[in-house]
Amino acid sequence: MIYAILRRFGQMLFVMFGISVIVFLIFFATPGADPAARIAGRNASPEVLEAVRHNFGFDRPLYVQYAKMMEKIFVTGDLTSFVNRGWKVVPAVMDSIPVTLSLVFGAAILWVVVSIIIGIVAAATRDSWLDKLLMALGLLGISMPVYWLGEVMNLITQSRYHDSWAFSWVPPLGYKNFSDDPKGWFLTLIIPWITLAILYIGIYGRVLRAAIIESLQEDFIRTARAKGLSETRILLRHALRTSLIAFVTLFGLDFGALVGGSALLTEVVFGLHGIGKLTYDALQNLDLPMIMATVMYASMFVVIANAVVDFVYILLDPRLRTS
């Protein structure tokens, strides 16, 4: 068991190393992507360019550049932005992490709970009007773009109906630290959570419903009926439990990607300065050290999320424990 965990950990490190090398090569070693020209700005004289090149170490061999960059990210943590001189990259990422984590964790709890309920109810009442209604609502949720939905939410809760009793509690856009103001943290995030979760509730509810209905065709469900169990017990203990594999797979992928920056649109709409926003801005300015740092951070979360999914698989399905 310990051996398996260590092996998994080794794999994670290896994957992250691979990602860092690839990202590094894309931005620093592809022809035409001269980082010095970027930093020196337009119309810089060759002398200035040369100075910048030397200053940032771009005249050294690639592997030295790579090693230096990794050292600055992971060891000394003093990597600075190319664009905003003196802006330290690592603390900037560290500041954004709680914002994104707060947003994604809350939304994830919301969408997992709601979609499990929807999936179960729809599967239990399949082909009824309730099932059809839930699935139609799910489809609606999937079809609404997050930026549009977010803007509509803002329109309703921030301006149009902000003064009505229903939305007067909604604080202005922006993020509040949990440690400073827990209530404010919660209130500012409620609307972003709902907005981000709606899409995933639609997808996950439909996926779970399909998986449960498939499970209900299995022989062991017939056995469970022959045992005289109640339909509720059959559904929750036998069909749902065996349907969660697809659900967990999907969750691992989506969660990792969202924490890694895919919640960008939601972050922008609600004025949350999270990882997504940070990465987006860095890409706009081709701020290489910042890109490097955010990508490393994102890949770490994707890899961790995958490892957690594998672990949950083993919890869910004993067949994976021995083989």
Binding site: T223, A226, R241, L316
Partner: peptide, 11 residues
């Protein structure tokens, strides 16, 4: 049932 391979819940 006929097939003991599938008649029991695997988990």
């Amino acid at each position: 049932f006929q097939d003991p391979m599938t008649a029991l819940t695997p988990v």
